[in-house]
Design a protein around this nucleic acid. Structure first.
Lengths: 154, 154
DNA sequence: AGCGATTATTTCAAGCTTGAAGTTTCATGA
DNA sequence: TCATGAAACTTCAAGCTTGAAATAATCGCT
């Protein structure tokens, strides 16, 4: 996924884009992962789950989480298990539907996340520092239109 | 890594870009992974290693591979182990430095990769079909300049 | 020659990830 | 009511991933 196209031709331009896209996100992701580990002794998947929950104080279902984070159900189960055992989130059984449980940040989890998120935002600002504000806006715009087109496919 | 910034402000534009970048690459990556599995019964990491080797008929060292693919040494060991056991690549001990071995595609591996790569290129063309050729070129350009700035940091 | 540092690689534990199979609960229509 | 199917979730095996520790071979220096 990281090697480039070996020749020129019609479909090559998009392949080139894909390679670049992947290398950029892997590079940044690796750097963020390393810093999360070193500075906060946590991981990217845990951060992702906490970020989602932070936006939803009322809580989220397991299936909400997996849909939002673009990962499988079984995956979320494991990550939430670990977060629960660390006291950062809770699974609250509901009265209505006993199959489901609302996952929420604990007070400690919320406090912990706020601190990590602040550092995270600064890191991203630093790592993407060479991209100008204007360029960032244009890139974001293109990626956004890609996304909405994607969602509207059969 | 997938949730968005919750407020507006100075550093938010790059954070927004990062979120979009990550969601786009995860989306495409998931689709490619699924197709590689279904159509060719292989995985993205195996494909990546084979793609790197395909570009270097003379072979690559394990450390060349891990550097090129942006993954750890131990990681490559496992993937190459599996490719060797499938008869797709070989580890050739060298006369000179007995610590190292040249990893090469076998004839079967090379043939197999060529077929997969052709399908892969078509998939990427399809998945990024909504991005115009011109947009693709501009996006690639921005990502390329990000990359070269990145490499030039201390 | 020999010793300490460096380099290339493997091994390992812990955690992430998927997809498939299994469990429990709910909804629906005969 | 109650069976049948759908929905929410968990479990599991296999593979990916990292970072640290262990091995082995080479290099540089005296």
């Amino acid at each position: 996924m990281v090697a480039g196209p070996t020749s020129t031709g019609p479909g090559k331009e998009r392949l080139r884009l894909w390679i670049r896209l992947l290398r950029a996100s892997r590079t940044i992701e690796a750097e963020l992962r390393e810093r999360l580990k070193k500075e906060f002794d946590t991981t990217l998947p845990r951060f992702d789950v906490m970020a989602a929950l932070y936006r939803s104080p009322e809580g989220m279902l397991m299936s909400d989480l997996s849909r939002f984070l673009l990962v499988s159900n079984g995956n979320v189960t494991g990550i939430v298990d670990r977060l629960v055992s660390e006291g950062l989130v809770t699974r609250a059984r509901r009265n209505g539907d006993r199959r489901t449980s609302m996952v929420r940040l604990t007070a400690e989890g919320s406090k912990s996340f706020a601190a990590i998120a602040a550092a995270h935002e600064n890191w991203v600002g630093e790592l993407l520092g060479t991209v100008s504000e204007d360029e960032a806006r244009r890139l974001t715009g293109m990626l956004k239109s890609f996304r909405s087109n994607w969602e509207g496919r059969e």
